[in-house]
Design a protein around this nucleic acid. Structure first.
Length: 777
RNA sequence: GGGCGCAUAGCUCAGCGAUUAGAGCGACCGCCUUACACGCGGUAGGUCCCAGGUUUAAAUCCUGGUGCGCCCACCA
């Protein structure tokens, strides 16, 4: 930290000389922005601790803080970030100017799957896979990548003018942060909320890992619905007996003629069928419940069972049950004690369990072959076109396979209730309120959270296995013939949970214990963001933060989980308010997408129009929480406005080339000894605008606030007052012009920080600091 | 199948119970007026989606309809 005088001499003296310089007619953001950001950074005032020794600047006892939603380490700035950061920066700058001890905490998320994918892609160019390198080497590579390319986005945020306290930047893989993650895991274990189990989870065959329910995306797909005949065991017909020509019209008649017909979109999965299920109320099938059908392709006999989950009105009303490869079927199987036949492996290929004919085939190849075989056997009754939603990986877009595997789960019912309570009572306010429903509907139908991932980049689960007893089962997916799913296994006797690897194995007393190969879901660590890795002092001073600003697509993924994490570990909600901002869409109302080329790059806007203009354009359009159909002309308007302000300043300076000790920004809204009829109303108007803008900012109405400031500066101050002032030649008008300009700079600064700071530095006023820390009383 | 939101000038949006419905951008006409042509002055442009209703009064509140967008859901 620099002493008071030194800091200001930097800003003041250099600009002092400028008093005599000609200012260019047009405002040029390129000359200003880099210089001003440097000025701010060198002052050290993004960090409020540097105010401590500062004369003439007392801080309020109140603190104000915001946590930047940590962008992915792989990320680069897009419009969503720009909107989020601009909103946050306005709030931060406003509160800093109000004299609060203000901190905006920045940082980056290690983004497990996303980052691993990026590095794997890079390796692939060299013809390597992560398996070629091995875990340790691969993780080294990821760190290398991180040092080289990671976190570019934070540099990009600086170009926007973000006044984050960079000295407090964190990374979710920092050692301190990692300790928090371990502590959290162990905490939940001790509370009995974490368990390991063999369950059917959504599996990405490309990323080679499990995913949680929130990491699944759905995309519409034109598919086929195959109607497949399952021959009844008791009356298997020979080829000659099978119906020809006219097919039976109704499922009932099919059944009577020795088949049960089942509709499916995934014929290949029938190799893992354990039953055919019908609704117990379905009259068509009542007689058949308890009978068996033959799975000819695998030579297995499976029962016909009754279950309420079956919709009588869909398809034929009879459903094939594939416990190991379908979430609903797994539940049915559990209820009926059916075996789980794993026929697809982690890479999306058929296992030995699928039979010799199919082993090793990719899912889609197996599908073709199964259909062909069924056709040969005359077991396909019909094929219909069918539109449905395909589950895909939210990171890589690959088709997901529900898969039976060993995973770690966090029990959610208690935590969900814990989260709901403060939101329902208003202790945590979601703004706008209707987004509460997103939270409620998820939490009220909550499932346990699968927190283990089979990738390498992330927080390795702090669990140690006895090598003698067994190897980590999570790495050895079981193939082959059916086995019962074990929903009750605890494995408590074979592993321990600990922050460090124990010296001696408590079980066999001789083996080197082995840490679990799994890592934690990235969102498990993100959930700790408002407190993990903070110093004790910062937790004391800045927890809870004042508002969380975020987009609506991570309300459940992130916000909900932060709420219960905060309650678990600090017994306090992490923030009283959650501001859900708009989503920026294309002008046509479509989602901005890099791959489709429909995205707008904020850096290009900054390059073209300047950072202030970009911020202006974004906030100008952010009138409510309504989604924004992006309109670049708003940024152009911002550029024009910056230029207008610049020229107002040039004009005022040309009138006021002297320096006046009696005019300072803190007095700009007062009007002592005003005599001229033109002066009182405009000063009064400025005061009103300031009051309104303050109210707007405090209720997050930033768009309306900016419109008001714009209107005042351009149409009241410039168009009316300055024009009228040209006819005057008294001393008062000079004072008022300067006062109006200072007042304008002050209220505009949070929105357009660069140009306002630049102008402030070249104005003839005494006792000048940085506008950034001037008081907004 | 549930839930949420939106429909106002050519475009993107304000206005959300009351004087001639506004802004930015665009269009048109005039101006290089000694701060700004990234400017100044002026003009045109609107059955405020449709149909009912409440009210002294509706773009604004209510009901229904139409059209768009988004989110959630295990219908094979």
């Amino acid at each position: 930290m620099k002493p008071y005088n030194e800091v200001f001499s930097f800003g003041y003296k250099s600009y002092n000389n400028k008093m005599t310089e000609e200012l260019s007619k047009a405002y040029d953001p390129k000359v200003t922005e880099e210089k001003i950001y440097k000025l701010w950074q060198e002052s050290g005032y993004f960090n409020p601790d540097n105010f401590a020794n500062l004369k003439n600047l007392k801080l309020k006892t109140k603190n104000y803080s915001i946590h930047l939603p940590p962008p992915n380490v792989t990320g680069s700035l897009h419009m969503g970030h720009a909107l989020n950061a601009t909103i946050a920066d306005i709030l931060i700058r406003y509160h800093r100017m109000k004299g609060y001890k203000t901190v905006w905490f920045p940082g980056i998320d290690h983004a497990g799957i996303a980052t691993q994918n990026v590095v794997e892609k890079q390796l692939k160019k060299e013809g390597l896979s992560r398996w070629d390198l091995g875990r340790e080497k691969f993780i080294e590579k990821v760190w290398e990548w991180k040092e080289k390319y990671g976190g570019i986005i934070l540099e990009q945020l600086k170009r926007l003018g973000a006044s984050c306290d960079w000295s407090r930047a964190r990374f979710t893989m920092d050692p301190d942060y990692a300790n928090w993650v371990k502590k959290a895991f162990i905490h939940y274990c001790e509370k009995g909320l974490i368990y390991r189990g063999k369950r059917v989870v959504s599996w990405c065959p490309r990323c080679q890992t499990s995913l949680s329910d929130l990491e699944i995306e759905y995309k519409p797909e034109k598919a086929k619905l195959w109607y497949i005949r399952y021959p009844l065991k008791t009356q298997i017909k020979t080829d000659d007996d099978r119906p020809r020509g006219k097919s039976p019209r109704s499922p009932l008649r099919s059944a009577e003629s020795a088949f049960v017909v089942v509709a499916t979109t995934r014929p290949e999965s029938m190799l893992g069928d354990a039953a055919v299920a019908v609704n117990p109320k379905d009259k068509r099938y009542k007689k058949l419940i308890g009978e068996s059908v033959n799975l000819l392709l695998v030579g297995r006999e499976i029962p016909i069972i009754a279950d309420d989950a079956i919709d009588m009105n869909f398809g034929t009303g009879a459903v094939k049950v594939t416990p190991a490869h379908d979430l609903l079927d797994a539940e049915i199987a559990e209820r009926h004690g059916l075996p789980f036949y794993q026929v697809i492996d982690e890479r999306g290929r058929m296992t030995v369990g699928a039979g010799k004919d199919f082993e090793g085939l990719k899912v889609l190849e197996a599908r073709e072959k199964v259909v062909a075989k069924l056709q040969e056997l005359g077991l396909i009754e019909k094929i219909e076109d069918y539109q449905h939603n395909l589950a895909v990986c939210y990171r890589c877009g690959a088709t997901l396979e529900p898969m039976l595997s060993d995973q770690w789960f966090l029990k959610m019912s208690e935590l969900a209730e814990k989260t709901l309570k403060p939101v329902k009572s208003g202790k945590v306010k979601i703004i706008p309120q209707n987004f509460e429903k997103i939270l409620f509907s998820w939490l009220e139908n909550i499932k346990d959270w699968c927190i283990s991932r089979q990738i390498w980049w992330g927080h390795q689960i702090p669990v140690y296995f006895c090598k003698q007893a067994q190897t980590d089962p999570s790495t050895s997916a079981e193939h082959g013939a059916g086995h019962s799913a074990d929903y009750t296994r605890t494995d408590a006797e074979k592993f321990i949970v600990a922050t460090e690897k124990p010296e001696q194995c408590p079980f066999c007393k001789e083996c080197e214990m082995e840490q679990s190969q799994d890592v934690l879901d990235t969102w498990f660590s993100s959930a700790l963001w408002p407190l993990a890795g903070l110093s004790e002092k910062d937790v004391e001073d800045f927890y809870p933060s004042n508002v969380l600003i975020t987009a609506r697509d991570i309300i459940n993924l992130w916000v909900a989980r932060m709420i219960f994490s905060g309650l678990e570990f600090v017994k306090k909600e992490p923030f009283p308010e959650v501001l859900i901002h708009a989503t920026i869409l294309t002008k046509e109302g479509k989602r901005m997408s890099k791959s489709l080329g429909t995205g707008i790059d904020p850096l290009e806007l900054i390059e073209k129009y300047g950072a202030d203009a970009t911020r202006f354009g974004i906030i100008w359009q952010a009138m409510g929480t309504q989604d924004i159909h992006w309109d670049e002309t708003a940024v152009m308007a911002g550029k024009k406005f910056a230029n207008k302000l610049w020229n107002i300043a040039r004009y005022v300076r040309s009138v006021r080339d002297d320096r006046d000790e009696n005019v300072s920004i803190e007095r700009s809204d007062r009007s002592p000894n005003i005599e001229h009829v033109d002066d009182k109303p405009i000063l009064e108007k400025l005061r009103i605008i300031e009051t309104e803008v303050r109210a707007n900012i405090e209720s997050y109405e930033l768009g309306p606030a900016l419109h008001k400031i714009y209107d005042f500066i351009w149409h009241e101050f410039a168009d009316k007052y300055i024009e009228a002032s040209k006819k005057r030649d008294d001393e008062e008008v000079k004072k008022v012009l300067l006062a109006l300009l200072l007042g304008s700079l002050k209220i505009l600064h949070p929105f357009m920080p660069f140009i306002t700071e630049e102008i402030y530095q070249i104005l003839p006023t005494e006792n000048k600091k940085l506008l950034m820390i001037e008081r907004w009383n």
